[in-house]
Amino acid sequence: MGYSFYEIYITSQRAFRALGFPFGADEDAGFIIAWLELNHFNGIKILHNLITSIDQQYDGTIKIDSLSEKIDFKNRTILMKGSGLIDYLQSIINQKEEISITIKNCQDAILFLPLLYKISKKISYLELQFNNSNNDIHKYKIKNNEITFEYETNKDLLSINEIIIIMNKDKKNLKNFSAKKIITQKIIQNNLLQSIKPAKDLWGKVSEIASKTFVPESEESRDKGAGGGDAND
């Protein structure tokens, strides 16, 4: 069955709310999942697989003592901590030409991609690197709402569950952006032309979680609502 971007977003956002995410964090996490699902990065599958570990476990706090040290996510998901970290990096980029940080104990690195994409109009160049399970380094380079992808063999630079994020504010120092673009505005518009089709069982589970935010309507509410007391004319 096919769904719109809005439906994927609102159902995910409600699911996060049911899982204990506060107002604002639920919207960010819902956006991450919907963006990934729209663009064929299996957002719903990622959310589905995280449900047990995040249910009523929300912790979006981050302790940053120094950017020279690795930031430890302590295996808490990017869905909780990612937005705050990206905001913080944005706030300090003005003082630096380039920021490169490493995050350790962090799974599902792809969850950072929508957050970086969202700020790519404001920051000249962004890069997301991580070690996939085949010991390849995946590199997503983002500039002005466009994303390229390339990968290279890992030479023990990055451990599993380690992620590097690079932000560069100087347009003159743009890195190579010649690889094939996997995301552009046009590609996103084309994706919107198609119904989004998450796997039925995974979507069913996410919808079930979202439904925990619903309330049975009271008789009084029904009587006062549209049509109540005067159904015909």
Partner: peptide, 8 residues
């Protein structure tokens, strides 16, 4: 970073 509950 320390008070994400006020984000929204």
């Amino acid at each position: 970073l320390s008070h994400p509950q006020f984000r929204g």
